[in-house]
Simulated assay, not measured.
Amino acid sequence: MLRTLRSRLAAAAGAAALVGTLLTLGPPAQAAVPASVPLKITNNSGRGEPLYVYNLGTLLTTGQQGWADANGTFHAWPAGGNPPTPAPDASITGPAAGRSATIRIPKFSGRIYFSYGQKLVFRLTTGGLVQPAVQNPADPNRNILFNWSEYTLNDAGLWLNSTQVDMFSAPYSVGVQRADGSTVSTGRLKAGGYNGVFDALRGQAGGWANLIQTRSDGTVLRALSPLYGVETGALPRTVLDDYINRVWQKYTTSTLTVTPFADQPGTKYYGRVSGGVMNFTNGSGAVVTGFQKPDADSVFGCHRLLDAPNDAVRGPISRTLCAGFHRSTLLVNPNQPDTTSAGFYQDAVTDHYARAIHAQMADGKAYAFAFDDVGHHESLVHDGSPLQAYLTLDPLS
């Protein structure tokens, strides 16, 4: 159902196993994980509009799509249509500014949406739920201020993240109370960080300011991810060509060494470009996979020419390449992944969207692209026996 959700949470939940089911991933739970966990939502936005919350996702046991109400009870979506039909109103009234409310989240792989002032519009096709797609000018949610968090709750625990893979919008942080009573959180911006991201995009030459979407009343709604920027023409398709070409040229005469598993330092793959293809060999010299020279779409989406299947070879290599392209580390370090954040985004041709977001995060962590978890730079909390989860909505400043 959710391409980016599956890729990020599968990686987060499955550090020890590269599979995408999310059913058997993660360390064994220290205690039985209950059927649902409380999620405390705190509205620190300072905004006076009504707040609407949605808990939408897929049951891990059956693969059935639906939504959960405030009590954590699952409701399956009815059959959709072609053209899409209106979905049932799954909204939960959220807390007013300065207040908190608690809902329960069931064993789901899904999203917690929240919107200010207006309810979101969801529709159903014969294939399931249609998610908001505000890169489309005709999307009915285009002029609504909203955002979402992503989570998986299963028998191995809770994985909860903040995400900017699709867009940067209304700020929030996430947290979890562990079995020992301690609390960890991530996703909070620095003071002034929300405006700081937009200011950085406005100040970046090359069309990056075109990612920003503003409502007719002057409200800044969001910045689209560079993937959608390229797809919609807001960013030129050539925006990364110079860097990509330099990488391909460098590894025509030198070797890129990829060590994709931190816990398996002996597993290495060696990349060299020949005939326009970067072929990777294993320690025995056998070719295990190869990549055509990617374009900006493939890099920003970590897909197409940089497809990352949930296998033990191509997927891990592709994840590493994708992170290196976003962070512009492939030219300065032939040993990847490069996990030292001080060296990220230093080339003039880089993912300036991800650069701006990471620079404004209080702990430096974000999910600014699908494989931002390479080297553990993602905004994710996890616990095998969670007592409570937190979603805190922060000021737009």
Rank of each mutant, 00 (worst) to 15 (best):
L2W: 07
H326S: 01
D351Q: 03
T252Y: 05
P78D: 10
V258M: 07
P132R: 14
S385G: 08
P140Y: 04
P132M: 13
P137M: 06
G315C: 15
L391A: 07
A31H: 14
D338A: 14
P226W: 08
T126Y: 05
N43A: 10
G196H: 03
R6W: 11
T73E: 10
V273H: 03
W248T: 15
L160Q: 05
S45Y: 00
G233Q: 08
P386R: 01
D373G: 07
F168M: 01
V176G: 09
G276H: 12
T42D: 03
S284D: 08
L124H: 06
T21L: 11
G315T: 14
Q135E: 15
D394M: 02
R111K: 15
P38R: 13
A179M: 13
D351E: 09
R272V: 14
A323F: 11
L393E: 09
A31V: 13
F198T: 02
D217S: 13
A262K: 08
N136W: 10
A17Q: 11
G127W: 10
A191C: 01
N136A: 12
S397I: 14
S169W: 00
R178Q: 11
G110C: 09
L2I: 10
L39D: 05
N161H: 06
T320W: 03
V134T: 14
G384W: 02
S149R: 02
N279E: 07
S225P: 00
P137D: 11
G80H: 05
G128A: 12
F291D: 06
N282I: 10
V381M: 07
A70P: 09
I92P: 08
A342D: 13
S162R: 12
Q64P: 02
P386M: 14
A179I: 12
N245T: 00
Y345G: 01
V332W: 01
L305S: 13
A223E: 05
L305F: 12
Y353H: 01
A90T: 14
